[in-house]
Write a protein that binds this DNA or RNA. Structure first.
Length: 725
RNA sequence: GCCAGUGUAGCUCAGUGGCAGAGCAACGGUUUUGUAAACCGUCGGUCGUCGGUUCAAUCCCGACCACUGGCUCCA
């Protein structure tokens, strides 16, 4: 509740929707629907049996962790404790707040349990027995705990299908409800380490209880653990935030610019420029045309597109121009004093939305005060207040009593603007396919905890384009888009990628997805066919499509193993209709085009962040911010002149080149250039000058010996032109 | 937004209830050099912000902000 007010002080509909005592609003317009309850995946027994040895070690280590926690804090209640990619975790509820300071103690206890080398004993029990044990607090415990039932285990038991065997695993005194499998003995856990503590929601449900999650990792032996720790160190070194700072690529300035809003420094700007150039050239050759659209649009744009109110939470709150637009006059009137009848509503609303409301007693806002008052009232009064609020604040009345100011939103996506470009001219089937491309800046209000370096930001440049086409053209267009993706992957040497093909679900039609069963089937079939025919590596993920059509997300893995969705490709057969987009077909009727949203390079921000980690900052020549540095051996006049001439020549060939003509020792100048990750160093000394040579040194390859200057310049220019790896 | 951790010079980090420290960078000199750091000097700080405790707070306490690791989310 607080969150909605804080984030959207002006977005009334949003504030109201999530205010807890206004549950009544869940009955409101069908576009405001709570998300479907998460369905926690339950691994089948077959899946579990496939656990690798390492996973068994880690899962067993989770039990050992639980054992240790219970010895220190016997009231702990455990939920899930699975192995994960880099280790394991166990979720628990406990009166003691476990912090990393407790790790040493915990690890001590864990070592004792491992040293005891207890057997992981499997016990099969009846459901009745299991329920009884859970109720006595025995499950996930060292002993019975009267009055402290194993509540999460009870819940887990409910999810075990009838007829499936129910088993315990027991090590020492610790008994846990668990399908296994485990290692034989606690002593089989060779080496482990607790890594971090975090909060996690029970079953991943934001509304569920919040648990403490302890993360750890475990390995067969100490060597393997140490190797992993080393790898973590290496990952830290390659982290795009670290390298970005070292190379002066970008900066965050939370105080002045705002969190999640990167500033591109000149060197990062150079990379950005190269990416745009690549995209522009590639798209030009593929028949795209370039457009440019503003960063703002009126509310009507996003109401029409359907993004409001669905995605209002992901957008920056609107700017309101009170004196403008058709409602300006009404607003003025309202300000001068509303009718008595309106006053109560206004007060209710002010309490809900006004951040600056003074606290009333213990409460943080008038809304809280109101909530208390209503709660303490008789059921009839509560009912009538709810009815009143529902009646008076429902959107229709709302707009009647509260003239809408002119609202402008920062765009969170480019598509609506492009749709309006489509609509700006009459279109014939002869104009299609129309491919509108733009490197457009979008703004999304990502939750504060979600921000992550360049990978998750609030302002982003999207390599966006929208292809409007007829259903007959769709397959070819879609194929061409995929080919463009593959072309890019080749340029950047991305061997490991996976396309996630997200489709709809029959149950979601009309709720999560536009209710067009025929079109869903058609487009999904078309997409699937194209993917298979193109021999593309993809997986199909049901029930994850966009609300307007199936989509493909491209996942890549950076060199340090981070997985990212960098590109996206979506079919849209719904929104063009909402905007009333049509083209005149051969048969002289107006038809709605299909639209393909595609962003092969995703956003500048994420893509460059990814590239930094991918290349560890050692970019290929064409992308390197510092492509060439000319270094003179001393600062004698003839050397200096030759050096400056070389810089000039390279610059006239559009090479990003700097000169280091200081009188520092050559070793220092090389070291500086290496630290700056300058791709190519050209050293000019008296010997070179005499022979018409330069000595070439590569950041990634060391000294390459002396070569004729003209040849070196030509090679550099050629390598950049070809975008060589 | 939630849980936890962190916040000292441009960067990497020391440190203490009683005058704020180093290395690198920057700047000024000296040095005249062949492939990862030559020497000397100078400058640089509201110790994240606000409040509290104290004779005295960068240090202790509280709130807030930002970042980091996770959770949830990512149309």
């Amino acid at each position: 509740m607080n969150r909605a007010r804080t984030r959207f002080p002006n977005a009334l509909s949003v504030s109201i929707r999530v205010h807890p005592w206004l549950k009544v609003f869940e009955l409101m317009p069908d576009e405001i629907q709570p998300p479907p309850a998460p369905n926690p995946e339950r691994k089948t027994l077959d899946d579990r049996a496939k656990m690798t040895e390492l996973e068994r070690i880690r899962h067993s280590c989770a039990h050992v962790l639980a054992t240790a926690i219970l010895r220190l804090w016997p009231d702990a209640q455990f939920a899930y404790g699975p192995p994960v990619e880099n280790g394991f975790y166990y979720d628990l509820e406990c009166s003691h707040r476990i912090s990393p300071e407790d790790f040493a103690k915990l690890e001590e206890e864990m070592k004792k349990e491992i040293k005891a080398n207890n057997v992981f004993e499997k016990l099969t029990v009846t459901r009745e027995q299991a329920i009884a044990d859970a109720q006595s607090g025995r499950l996930g415990g060292l002993a019975e705990r009267p009055g402290n039932a194993s509540k999460f285990k009870l819940d887990l038991l409910k999810n075990i299908p009838e007829g499936e065997p129910i088993s315990y695993y027991k090590n020492g005194d610790f008994i846990d409800l668990c399908a296994g499998p485990h290692v034989m003995r606690t002593g089989n856990i060779g080496a482990f380490k607790l890594t971090t503590v975090a909060a996690a929601y029970y079953k991943g449900d934001e509304k569920g209880p919040q648990l403490q999650r302890i993360y750890g990792t475990a390995f067969k032996n100490k060597t393997a653990l140490e190797e992993w720790l080393k790898l973590q160190e290496e990952a830290k070194r390659r982290d795009h935030r670290k390298i970005g700072a070292e190379m002066n690529l970008f900066a965050f300035d939370a105080d002045f610019t705002g969190p999640g809003l990167p500033l591109w420094l000149p060197k990062g700007g150079a990379i950005l420029e190269e990416l745009e150039k690549l995209a522009k050239e590639t798209e030009f050759q593929a028949g795209y045309v370039r457009v440019k659209t503003p960063h703002l649009a009126r509310e009507k744009m996003y109401k029409t597109s359907g993004h409001l109110p669905y995605y209002a939470e992901s957008m920056f709150p609107p700017m309101e121009l009170q004196g403008e637009g058709e409602f300006g006059v009404k607003v003025q009137k309202f300000k001068q004093g509303a009718a008595e009848d309106d006053r109560l509503i206004r007060e209710v609303l002010e309490g809900l939305i006004d951040l600056k409301s003074p606290p009333v007693g213990e409460e943080k806002s008038w809304g809280d005060a109101l909530q208390r008052v209503v709660k303490s009232a008789s059921p009839e009064t509560q009912k009538s207040v709810e009815t009143f609020v529902y009646d008076r604040l429902s959107l229709s009345l709302f707009s009647a009593h509260f003239p809408q100011p002119d609202r402008y939103y920062l765009k969170a996506m480019n598509c609506p603007h492009h749709h309006r470009i489509f609509a700006a001219e009459p279109r014939s089937y002869r104009d299609l396919p129309l491919r509108l491309a733009e490197y457009g800046t979008c703004y999304r209000y990502e939750q504060s905890g979600e921000l992550f370096g360049l990978m998750r930001v609030r302002s982003m440049n999207m390599n966006d384009a929208h292809i409007y086409c007829t259903p007959e053209q769709f397959a070819d267009e879609f194929r061409a888009v995929n080919e463009m993706y593959l072309k890019y992957f080749q340029i950047f040497g991305l061997g490991k990628y996976q396309m996630r093909f997200s489709t709809s679900s029959p149950e979601g039609l009309g709720k999560k997805y536009v209710n067009e069963p025929e079109l869903w089937k058609q487009t999904e079939d078309m997409v699937r066919r194209v993917l298979v025919e193109s021999g593309i590596n993809f997986v199909e993920v049901p029930n994850e499509a966009a609300f307007y059509g199936p989509k493909i997300d491209v996942q890549v893995w950076s060199a340090i193993g981070r997985e990212f969705t960098i590109a996206t490709n979506q079919v849209d057969f719904a929104v063009p209709a909402k905007f009333g987009l049509t083209y005149r077909d051969r048969d002289n009727t107006d038809k709605t085009p299909l639209c393909i949203h595609r962003a092969p390079l995703g956003t500048h921000e994420r893509f460059i962040g990814f590239l930094i980690e991918h290349y560890a900052g050692n970019f290929p020549l064409w992308l390197a911010p510092d492509q060439v540095r000319v270094i003179t051996l001393g600062d004698d006049a003839p050397l200096l002149a030759a050096g400056k001439a070389l810089v000039h020549e390279l610059r006239q060939n559009f090479v990003r080149v700097t000169g280091d003509f200081t009188n520092e020792p050559i070793k220092a100048k090389i070291a500086n250039a290496e630290h700056a990750r300058v791709h190519t160093m050209l050293v000019l000394g008296p010997r070179d000058l005499e022979a018409g040579n330069v000595s070439v040194r590569l950041h990634t390859g060391g000294p390459q010996g002396a070569k004729p200057t003209a040849q070196v310049v030509a090679e550099i220019v050629q390598s950049i032109k070809e975008r060589r790896a």
